[in-house]
């Protein structure tokens, strides 16, 4: 089935865009570190959290990945990004990710979307949350 376009008319505040479970692997951590030039023994060996952990921004692409699983998206211009790190994800841990549309608005003739990525650990506790504010293509959007 064709995915809907990532445009105003196909989105609404409160909408759950998608959910999925993924396992944080040592390979994911290595790829993340390689892409960012990051390195830390805690990511490969023991850490104060009882074993190797993932870097804080390991889920940096996952909000867009979940959008791409559910929408046809050309590219996204981000305006703001906010992260809250509750605890690091452990290497080998299975986490649950959910993306929700928190707000949609029009300002100065442009559409804006605020999306949240919520990541929970195996026990259901929050690992991290992030809020992404991006430009959204307007089609039938109206001021007010």
């Amino acid at each position: 089935m064709d995915k809907p376009d990532f445009v105003w008319e196909n989105l609404s505040a409160g909408m759950v865009v998608g959910e999925r479970e993924i396992t944080v692997t040592a390979e994911m951590v290595a790829e993340h570190c390689g892409a960012l030039g990051a390195d830390r023994a805690w990511y490969r060996e023991e850490s104060p959290f009882g074993g190797p952990i993932a870097p804080p921004m390991i889920f940096i692409n996952d909000l867009l990945a979940i959008y791409d699983e559910n929408f046809r998206r050309f590219g996204t211009i981000h305006a703001k990004l906010a992260y809250r790190f509750h605890r690091p994800a452990r290497v080998g841990e299975r986490v649950h990710q959910r993306v929700t549309v928190k707000d949609l608005y029009v300002r100065r003739g442009k559409g804006w979307i605020v999306s949240e990525l919520l990541v929970r650990g195996e026990g259901g506790d929050v690992v991290c949350t992030s809020l992404h504010t991006s430009v959204l293509s307007l089609t039938r959007a109206r001021e007010g």
């Binding site: 830390r40 870097p55 906010a82 790190f85 509750h86 605890r87 690091p88």
Partner: peptide, 27 residues
């Protein structure tokens, strides 16, 4: 580059950033 900030803060604050840290930026 926001990830650079996160790694930098982890260098400085260690577990105090990984469990309790926050970042808020505007591009």
């Amino acid at each position: 580059p926001v990830a650079f900030i996160a790694e930098w803060m982890t260098d400085l604050l260690g577990a105090g950033f990984l469990a309790g840290g926050e970042i808020e930026v505007t591009f």
